[in-house]
Amino acid sequence: MFIQSKKGLPFKHVGSVHAFDKEMAVQNARDLYTRRGEGKGMWVVPASSIVAVDPSDNQSFFEPADDKVYRHPTFYELPDGIKNM
């Protein structure tokens, strides 16, 4: 179950529901997760359709980013006098 808290914002995972079909999933999700105006939009996705990265793959998945510091703007030296870039 994913909720968009305001129009224009990304959808965020909030939890899960049990249901036999899509219609029941949406109704249960509404009753359970949007009782106080928490959402403007709602996605319900079967848990089995989500592909998650196994944490034991974490290293190969996420580490290469660490040695590419030149991808960050703070890596670059700017001449004095440049204030906003």
Partner: peptide, 16 residues
């Protein structure tokens, strides 16, 4: 509304 909330709380924790 309160009793419905309690059902909801149970379901959040069951899912977790």
């Amino acid at each position: 509304a309160k009793v419905q909330d309690e059902a909801g709380h149970g379901l959040y924790i069951y899912s977790a």
